[in-house]
C-alpha cells in the first residue's frame, strides 16, 4: 500500500504469526469469560418459582409479548446507515490510494460525497431524521390552535 512512497516504512505482508497471536488472545478472552459464567452458574444461589422468572415489568404481571413491532424510524436509521456506511467504505478505499489517483480521484470522490450529501439534505428536509413529531405535523398542530 505504501510502496510508492519511499519515506515510509513498508507494510509487512500478512503473516501467520500475527494471526496466531491474535487467535490465542481471542482464545484466552473467550476461555476466561466462559469460566466466569460457569463459575457463577455453579456457585450461585438457586430457587425456582414461576413468578420470579417472569420478565420485569415494574412489579406487575407482564402483559403480552415483548417482541413488539419496532417504531419505523429505527428501520429508517438502519437503512440510512447502510447507505452512508457504503459511502464510508468507498471514501476509505480512495483514502488508502489517493496518492496514486491524484486530482482525478479527488474530483470523483468529492462528486460522490457531494451526491450523498445532497441525499442527506433531502432526508433532512423530508423529516426522515426527525424524532418525535415531525416539523410538518408540529406546524399543522400550531395552526389548529386559534
Amino acid at each position: 500500500m505504501s510502496s510508492t512512497t519511499g519515506s515510509l516504512p513498508t507494510t509487512a505482508p500478512i503473516l501467520f504469526e500475527d494471526y496466531l497471536a491474535l487467535g490465542i488472545y481471542v482464545g484466552i478472552a473467550l476461555f476466561l469469560v466462559a469460566i466466569l459464567l460457569l463459575l457463577s452458574w455453579g456457585l450461585g444461589h438457586r430457587t425456582r418459582s414461576r413468578i420470579k422468572n417472569e420478565p420485569y415489568e415494574s412489579g406487575v404481571y407482564p402483559t403480552d409479548n415483548a417482541r413488539l413491532k419496532g417504531p419505523v424510524p429505527f428501520y429508517l436509521v438502519a437503512i440510512f446507515f447502510i447507505l452512508f456506511d457504503i459511502e464510508v467504505i468507498f471514501v476509505a478505499s480512495w483514502a488508502v490510494a489517493y496518492d496514486r489517483l491524484g486530482w482525478a480521484g479527488f474530483g470523483q470522490v468529492s462528486f460522490f460525497t457531494l451526491v450523498l450529501l445532497v441525499g442527506l439534505l433531502h432526508l433532512w428536509k423530508t423529516g426522515a431524521l426527525d424524532w418525535g413529531p415531525s416539523a410538518a405535523r408540529q406546524n399543522r398542530k400550531n395552526q389548529d390552535i386559534p
Binding site: 407482564p62 415483548a66 413488539l68
Partner: peptide
C-alpha cells in the same frame, strides 16, 4: 423478551450505528 430490554436494545443499535 422484556419490553425494557427490547427498547434499550433498539435504541442502542440505532445510536451506535
Amino acid at each position: 423478551n422484556s419490553k425494557y430490554s427490547l427498547l434499550g436494545g433498539v435504541r442502542a443499535s440505532a445510536q451506535m450505528i
